[in-house]
């Protein structure tokens, strides 16, 4: 009988867990209560694993420099960008965005960029945070 996993398992007893306990080491009684306490500064949050450079995070839109050329709309695979004809600017629906970053490369004015923000969950897909422009 051969069980090469046993020494590995015994060694594991002395090691820390491989996962990062984010946002808290133990499940808090209420998540919303915990997040509120973090916001008020009463509790501390275990930080997430640092993101690598050039990670594809949430979109950033610089409305001022946008010229409304619609090139980003043409290449967006998720159809997450629409043109607002009155203002000749675009509107980006982050909840629909797949973070491929194709629009950031095609933009002639560099007004679209990917940030390293990744905690973008929301209960309303049309909230101010998730609709840019």
């Amino acid at each position: 009988m051969s069980f090469p996993m046993i020494p590995e398992l015994l060694g594991q007893l002395l090691k820390k867990p491989a996962t990062n306990p984010f946002p808290a080491p133990q499940l808090p009684p209420t998540i919303t209560g915990y997040l509120k306490a973090v916001g008020e500064g009463k509790a501390t949050m275990n930080p997430p694993v640092p993101v690598p450079p050039n990670m594809r995070g949430k979109m950033v839109y610089n409305r001022g420099t946008c010229i409304g050329c619609s090139l980003c709309i043409k290449v967006c695979p998720a159809r997450a960008i629409e043109l607002v004809p009155q203002t000749k600017k675009v509107r980006i629906f982050v909840s629909q965005c797949i973070n491929c970053g194709q629009c950031t490369e095609v933009c002639p004015k560099n007004c679209l960029n990917l940030s390293d923000e990744f905690l973008i969950a929301d209960t309303d897909r049309y909230s101010d945070k998730l609709v840019l422009g």
Binding site: M5, E8, A18, P52, P53, N54, M55, R56, I98, N99, C100, G101, Q102, L114
Partner: peptide
């Protein structure tokens, strides 16, 4: 063994994220 294989796999996922910007759909 399942946990071990998946823990080891995290290393290559991190490398892919570092090279391409995404963990799964590398674009």
């Amino acid at each position: 063994a399942f946990y071990l294989a998946w823990r080891v796999r995290e290393n290559v996922m991190d490398l892919l994220e570092y090279l391409t910007g995404n963990r799964v759909h590398y674009a």
